[in-house]
Structures are given as C-alpha cells and as structure tokens.
Computed example of a mutant assay.
Amino acid sequence: MVAGSVYAWLVSLLWPERVPPTAPVPPPKLPLNTMFVYGTLLGLAAASAAAIGYLLDLEHVGWPTGAVLLVMRPARSQLVLRSIGRAASVLLGSLAAAAFAVFSTQGLGTALVVGVVVAAMAATTASRWYVTPGFASFIVLTFIMQADTTESPGDRFVERTMETLLGISLALLFGALIPAIIQRVRKVRTPV
C-alpha cells in the first residue's frame, strides 16, 4: 500500500495542476427557517428508514438509510432527479452483479472485473448522470455474493433494489410531499 501510494504520488507529479477557469459560484443562501425545516425532515426521513429497517429486520439497514441521505435535497427538482437516477443506477448495477454471479466463478476473473468497474466508476465521477450507485451496487453485491452463497443472486438483487426503493420513497415523502403539505397549510393560514 505504501509503495502504491508513493507510485501514485510520483505519477501525479508529472501532470500540471489544474486551475479552474473561473471562481466557483457560491451556492445560494436559503432562509434559515427553510433550512431548519429541511434539516428536520431529513433527520426524520433517515430515522424512519433506520426504524423501518430494524422493524423489518433487514439485513442491511444502512441501504435504505443511505438512500434517503444521498437522495434528499432541499430543492424538489434535484430530489426527483436524484431519486430517478439512483433507482435506475442501483437497479442496473444490482442486475449486472446478479447476472455476473450466475455466470462467474470466484477468483482472478472477479478481481479483474471489479478492477475494471472501479476504474469505470472513477472515470465517471464527474459525470452529470448519477451513475456511481450502479458501480457501487455491482461491487458490493459481487463481494457479498462471493462471500455468502446461502442466498441466490436473484434474492440479493431484490434485497438491494427494494431496500434502495424504500429509502427513495421515504426521501420523496419527507422531501417533496410533506413540504408541499406544509406550504399548502401556510397558504391557508395566511390571509390574502
């Protein structure tokens, strides 16, 4: 690991530093009460995901909880786009991992494929498409299925996608539906 780190550092010295062409634009400042409501709803969504995970005795309670925290955003448009992107990405990554598990054997082949997937994930990190969860799902499920052969690849696929969809559903509930209800109640309370 040390030799690999030193090698990577030496190779990085060959490339000039990149300076961004313009200064980054600071994110817009949202009102404090808006951020307080968002933070409260985000906490409630994540806590609900964890509570449901424990109540249902899910094997990976962190999957729905992580999906909530990674998808939920204060802007509804970002929340919807990230929800669709994460659902599609996890679905494809999980499906690829399940198919790979059916046709693969353990060993060098798996190591090579995972290495290629890690490289592809690193290469697409700056993509405007939300593809990283697909690569991560492939890697995680491949390793889980290599270590634990008691469950079928199909069961692991369903487990990963359903737990992610649970988290996305909670993010949409707490990030889009409840704020819309709060906004509607405020409009009814304030006279025109």
Rank of each mutant, 00 (worst) to 15 (best):
G107C: 07
S94A: 15
V116Q: 02
L14M: 08
L41A: 03
W15K: 15
G39F: 05
Q106L: 15
A97F: 05
D57R: 15
Q106K: 13
P16K: 06
T124F: 09
E159Q: 14
A49D: 01
S83Q: 00
P74Y: 00
P179F: 00
S89E: 00
Q146H: 13
T110N: 11
G154Q: 08
P133Y: 04
V61M: 08
Y7W: 14
I139W: 05
L108H: 07
Q78D: 14
F157N: 03
W15G: 10
L166V: 06
P26K: 08
S77E: 12
A171D: 03
T142I: 05
A99C: 14
S48L: 09
L177S: 07
G154A: 04
L10N: 09
Q146G: 08
A97Q: 02
G43L: 00
G134H: 02
G115C: 04
S5V: 09
T34V: 14
G43M: 00
A67M: 02
S83M: 06
L55D: 13
S127T: 10
M1S: 13
V90D: 01
S94R: 02
L91W: 12
D148W: 06
V118K: 03
L55C: 12
V68P: 03
G134N: 07
Y130A: 05
P21A: 15
L42M: 13
L108D: 10
T40K: 07
V113N: 06
R184D: 13
L173Q: 01
H60E: 07
V118H: 01
R76I: 15
G62E: 08
T65R: 00
L92S: 13
V2G: 07
L172D: 03
S83K: 00
A136V: 15
W9Q: 07
T110H: 06
P24F: 03
V71D: 04
P179V: 02
P24S: 09
L13H: 12
M145F: 05
A120F: 11
M72K: 04
S152I: 02
G62V: 12
I139G: 09
G109I: 08
F174K: 02
